[in-house]
């Protein structure tokens, strides 16, 4: 019996969401008196954080076919690792790869899955239950997983990462994909060049139609820069091509849950809130004191963004200068 955690490298190090997943696995393993095995494709970067996050063992999955992260090959590789490790619990993060591969693993093992878990499982005897968000964040539901094997994909940013002074045993794991073929051919990859990946960002500055036009985004970007935040926008802003579509947050865009979300000139429609209501702290800046967003805010400034934002940027710069 073991807890298997799928992890990935991004920008030269273990992804934060992967460390959250290993931490999560460590807490489950402690309850079940077992240990965590992390699996990673390639693993040429520094992977020592996997040990620090709680993995006892790391399997580096090796096979040339894995280089494109094709879901079919990856799922087969994870299945082989899960069998070799006798994994009873398999953990993913509920991100792009997780959404592609976790359902395949669930179907392969006919194992119950909770997709998008937000809390630690409650384990007592044979009962195993996990909480997730439902109705786009308007409620949570506790699911009980009834199958012997259990799969959880953890919603990123649900827990802070805790690293300890520990190391993992690292072993190569040769995957056999001789009998597996995938007809999917990758023609082109367009990487988003912004430094901060919106779904991972701890701080997000978002703006809406109240900004009047794309030419006014300079101050939004500057505010984001002063905080080290990623930028986001409401849907009409993306639809009008004022901002790239990957910045669109909400029910039909990306769902994010940063520590701090600034909503500037956004009215706070329910479909927008559905993508951001998991943020820990929400600040709303809006010229209309009756804007619905204030009802979902922790801090509010009623005022014209064109006046407030430049002052706010200055205040943040002063604050940062004082801290150093």
């Amino acid at each position: 019996m073991s807890v298997l955690v799928y992890t990935e490298i991004g920008k030269g190090k273990i992804k934060k969401a992967s460390l959250e997943a290993v931490n999560y696995g460590r807490r489950i393993a402690a309850q079940l008196n077992t240990s965590v095995t992390a699996i990673i494709v390639g693993g040429d970067a520094d992977i020592s954080d996997l040990g620090r996050a709680g993995a006892k063992k790391v399997l580096k999955l090796k096979n040339d076919k894995l280089s494109n992260f094709d879901g079919k090959y990856l799922a087969e590789a994870i299945e082989q690792a899960a069998n070799a490790e006798n994994a009873t619990i398999i953990i993913f993060s509920h991100d792009f790869t997780g959404k592609e591969v976790a359902p395949r693993i669930a179907a392969k093992f006919k194992a119950g899955i909770v997709a998008g878990a937000v809390d630690n499982p409650v384990i007592s005897g044979d009962s195993f239950s996990v909480m997730k968000n439902v109705f786009s964040g308007k409620a949570t539901a506790v699911y009980s997983i009834n199958s012997a094997k259990k799969i959880i994909s953890l919603l990123p940013n649900s827990f802070p990462v805790i690293l300890m002074d520990e190391t993992a045993e690292v072993v190569d794991f040769a995957v056999n994909l001789d009998n597996v073929t995938s007809p999917v051919k990758v023609k082109e990859v367009k990487k988003d060049t912004s430094e901060l990946n919106l779904p991972d960002a701890e701080l997000v500055v978002s703006a809406g139609r109240g900004m009047k036009g794309p030419e006014n985004w300079g101050m939004i970007e500057e505010l984001a820069k002063s905080l080290g935040a990623a930028t986001a926008c409401s849907r009409p802003v993306a639809d009008m091509h004022w901002r790239p579509h990957h910045e669109h947050v909400g029910q039909t865009g990306v769902a994010i849950r940063p520590n701090l979300y600034f909503a500037i000139g956004i009215s706070g429609a329910i479909q927008h809130l559905a993508g951001v209501n998991g943020s820990k702290t929400i600040v709303v800046i809006n010229s209309d004191k009756d804007a619905p967003f204030f009802k979902s805010a922790d801090y509010g400034i009623v005022g014209d963004a064109f006046e407030v934002v430049p002052k706010l940027i200055q205040a943040i710069k002063d604050f940062k200068a004082n801290q150093n």
Binding site: K110, A111, G112, I113, V114, S129, N133, V134, G137, K138, A139, T140, A141, V142, Y143, S144, I145, N146, S147, N277, I282, V284, F294, K295, S296, A297, D298, Y299, G300, I301, V302, G303, D304, E307, V308
Partner: peptide, 23 residues
């Protein structure tokens, strides 16, 4: 087979009061 089932639901607690700061 029912691999999972929902045991209970809970409405997400809304934010209660917004603290206003002068512009």
């Amino acid at each position: 087979d029912k691999l999972t089932n929902i045991v209970s639901y809970k409405l997400t607690a809304g934010r209660t009061d917004c603290k206003y700061i002068d512009a």
